[in-house]
Design a protein around this nucleic acid. Structure first.
Length: 124
DNA sequence: TAACTGACTCGGC
DNA sequence: AGCCGAGCCAGTT
């Protein structure tokens, strides 16, 4: 299993997050699993915290934890920005929790081509 | 170089 | 249904 690729782990995470459609959300674990690093969910969160000044921008607000909780909201300024962006896309938030999480959930492993192909077709 | 740190997850109570 | 402890891995110090 090639754990190393031509792209940094961070860059891979960002690429996947950019593929999440507006109005949908995904989880750290789902991204990690898609990247063949199912145990690296924490790293995904770590990568997202570093994504705030990434180019092109990363829609980090569409990534929540497995309970649909907005655990990363403190990475935004103000922290309410994460919930506001989601609600602007039609995702209902209550008490920092995504409502109808099961319906809004978007799984990269299901909706995206295999990671190898996905990164192959990526520009740059 | 070794130790510490997380925007997490899973399983057991 | 919600809390607690252990495992996880790349980056940073």
């Amino acid at each position: 299993m090639p754990r190393k690729t031509d792209l940094d782990f961070f860059a891979q995470v960002w690429a996947v997050v950019r593929a999440v459609p507006p109005g949908r959300v995904t989880t750290y674990g789902a991204i990690a699993q898609y990247l063949s690093a199912a145990r690296a969910a924490r790293l995904v969160g770590y990568a997202l915290r570093a994504s705030l000044n990434a180019h092109p921008p990363v829609p980090a607000h569409r990534v929540v934890n497995r309970h649909g909780l907005l655990t990363g909201k403190f990475g935004f300024s103000p922290p309410t920005l994460m919930a506001e962006r989601l609600q602007a896309e039609g995702v209902l938030i209550e008490n920092d929790r995504v409502q109808n999480f099961a319906q809004k959930f978007w799984d990269p492993s299901y909706h995206l081509p295999p990671a190898v192909l996905f990164f192959q077709q990526l520009p740059c």
